[in-house]
């Protein structure tokens, strides 16, 4: 009897449609959260060296289509595509210098092979007689850094393996001579990397004699600090010129500077305030 009295609930098509959409959105939200969590983690892999001419890592990950044509173009089989499980953004090209460095081919075959522009020829080109020509010395794959504690040259042992392996000999790595005070009659010949010139090819890392390389290539962004703009080398004309046109009589107005120094030093106003 009570069943007959109950108001009949009509589920309209519109209600069905909206419910179905809401259900799908709910499931998509859950799936999307897990998926995007994976994506964010997967692309945050800073310790990876890219082929020459690669865009900044963030843009590179956007633009690389993971086709591997750069890998096929490399005559030395230096480049690999990241496999699932390598803990690198999957399918993107990279190299491990200790295993196989970049041999800095002058025609840079990996760069023109890229169909998407993730490896950009402009980044490894220079002007020659008004024409753009590929110039591998412009490459910035990374930056070699020296662990002075495990480099035997810093012990006073003559090594210079990295210095001689460097394709930009005496430019990207220089040897600094210092007196060895421990023996009193020998010299330290320690390697110094010139960051402007180093291409990050990794020949030095490959050549290093220690068990785990004492000189190794890091992505430039990781290897370097960042001095803020307001530090200027007064002894460097170029750097000093940044001051041109900057007015020196900038006056800072604070609560204290409203009065001249002698005024506020002499007055005891505010000293005994809580």
């Amino acid at each position: 009897m009570s069943n007959l009295n109950k108001k009949k609930i009509v589920i309209s098509d519109r209600r069905k449609f909206i419910s179905l959409m809401a259900q799908s959105i709910g499931l998509s939200a859950l799936g999307g959260m897990i998926w995007s969590g994976y994506l964010q983690e997967a692309k945050a892999s800073p310790l990876i060296l890219r082929p020459p001419g690669a865009l900044q890592e963030f843009d590179f990950l956007r633009a690389c289509i993971k086709c591997g044509q750069c890998v096929e173009a490399c005559p030395y089989d230096t480049l690999h595509l990241a496999k699932p499980g390598d803990n690198k953004p999957m399918g993107t090209p990279y190299f491990i210098p200790r295993q196989k460095p970049c041999y800095m081919c002058t025609d840079i075959p990996c760069v023109p092979a890229c169909p998407t522009g993730a490896l950009e020829a402009d980044k490894v080109s220079s002007l020659k007689d008004g024409q753009k020509v590929l110039d591998i010395e412009k490459a910035k794959m990374g930056l070699a850094v020296v662990d002075e504690e495990s480099c035997v040259a810093y012990w006073g042992i003559q090594c210079d393996a990295c210095y001689r392996a460097c394709p930009l000999l005496d430019e990207a790595i220089t040897l600094e001579y210092k007196r060895n005070a421990r023996t009193g009659k020998h010299a330290y010949l320690v390697p110094k990397v010139v960051s402007d010139i180093c291409t990050g090819c990794g020949m030095c890392e490959r050549a290093c004699i220690t068990k785990k390389a004492a000189i190794f290539v890091l992505p430039t962004a990781l290897a370097k600090g960042d001095i803020a703009d307001h530090y200027i080398k007064g002894w460097d004309k170029n750097d000093e010129s940044r001051l041109d046109g900057v007015s020196s009589d900038v006056t800072t107005k604070t609560k204290r500077s409203e009065l001249a120094p002698q005024d506020y030093l002499n007055s005891d106003k505010g000293i005994f305030d809580e």
Binding site: L61, R62, K66, L81, G85
Partner: peptide, 26 residues
């Protein structure tokens, strides 16, 4: 996320890329 989302998880890509360039955990 600023990265091609399906390409990062696609088993299709893992398979054809894997056959050409090495499978790994694919």
């Amino acid at each position: 996320t600023g990265i091609a989302a399906f390409e990062m998880v696609s088993p299709i890509s893992m398979l054809h890329r894997g056959i050409v360039f090495g499978m790994g955990m694919g």
